[in-house]
């Protein structure tokens, strides 16, 4: 049976799916990137291969997305390397064909995608600031001595969420410390934080956008029921969180790989190959670009990071 592999390597987590020609998921895996995207991809491929063991499956095309999509694409010789916004939109509309609004909050970025008749019509992404994203929530959880996974459940127990300044991460943090010191309850502060994330999101990436139901909420932060509820309170619409929501990016790019028409048998044996990256500073002009070279078993397979042709390093094909 022909199958298609989609890999989504984000800043925090790495996701992978294998689908058949009808977009049904044959295997899927979710693990932490732990700052080592290549290691994570290797572990991901091993896990997917073991799930598929004994089945007659041949991966015909590979797609990669997420912030490490280029690196992963080089490792797996992917047919499609696509940005995460398009990948998420394709993945979500395949699961929810009538979706109108997609909220997405990940580890380092947040975005909103507006869909009409299954076609993306507009999107926005946070600019230079990562306030209100997953990294912010997990650092605040650590400060409060709570596991970030429990955050949502604790938030739901609050009767009176504490108002927290949502504008800026730095100020939110000092506001939070202040509120704790003057005696606000922990669950109220946590609920306030969830609300702050939503207010921040709607006022920044969601600013000026027409939010219409059905709404799907995804990305790592969607696992937090406190944030989901805050979204429902703020918009007045029900918000759907798919149990496979974390996989939509990988699913979307697998679908794109299937639709690309480009096929080339892929072997999970890539996981056993030796991959090394090396950063070289190009000294040919005063831009001093940091060029990343990717080696497979000692052989240069790809490079990027040069701003001009002087720094181009040709891979031996």
């Amino acid at each position: 049976m022909k199958a298609y592999l989609g890999i989504d390597v984000g800043s925090i987590s790495t996701k992978g799916v294998v689908i058949d020609s009808k977009n049904a998921i044959l295997a899927s895996e979710y693990l932490w990137t732990e700052g080592d995207p290549m290691g994570a991809v290797r572990r991901l491929l091993k896990a997917l291969a073991s799930q598929l063991e004994g089945k007659d499956v041949q991966v015909a095309a590979v797609g990669t997305t997420g912030s490490a999509r280029k690196l992963t694409g080089a490792m797996t010789d992917a047919q499609v390397v696509k940005n995460e916004i398009t990948a998420h939109a394709i993945g979500t509309t395949s699961l929810y064909p009538d979706v109108r609004t997609i909220f997405e909050i990940g580890g380092q970025d947040s975005k909103i995608i507006l869909v009409e008749n299954g076609i993306v019509v507009d999107y926005a992404m946070n600019t230079l600031c990562a306030a209100g994203t997953g990294s912010f929530l997990s650092s605040q959880a650590r400060r409060l001595g709570v596991q970030v996974e429990e955050f949502g459940e604790i938030a739901l127990t609050s009767q009176h969420p504490t108002p927290i300044a949502a504008r800026c991460t730095v100020f939110a943090e000092s506001d939070l410390v202040h509120k704790a010191q003057i005696g606000h309850k922990k669950e109220d502060i946590i609920a306030g934080l969830c609300k702050a994330v939503v207010t921040n999101y709607l006022n920044n990436v969601g600013k000026g956008k027409k939010i219409a139901p059905p709404i799907v909420f995804q990305g790592g932060v969607s696992k937090n029921v406190g944030v989901k509820k805050a979204f429902e309170d703020a918009t007045g619409f029900p918000v759907t969180v798919d149990p496979n929501g974390h996989l939509t990016g990988a699913l979307g790019v697998a679908i794109l790989a299937r639709k690309s028409g480009k096929e080339q048998p892929f072997s999970f044996g890539v996981a056993d190959m030796d991959f090394v990256t090396r950063g070289v500073e190009c000294g040919k002009c005063s831009n001093r670009c940091e060029i990343i070279c990717v080696y497979q078993n000692g052989r240069l397979i790809d490079s990027w990071g040069n701003r001009c042709e002087n720094g181009a390093i040709r891979a031996a094909k």
Partner: peptide
């Protein structure tokens, strides 16, 4: 744009923006 070194954020934003336009123009985004 700030003095950031990485171009990944820029590429993500421009590529997805152009994808939307291609979607609208009903072209094959791949």
């Amino acid at each position: 744009i700030d003095g950031q070194e990485g171009s990944a954020g820029l590429e993500t934003r421009l590529e997805s923006f152009v994808d939307i336009i291609h979607f609208k123009r009903e072209e094959d985004i791949t």
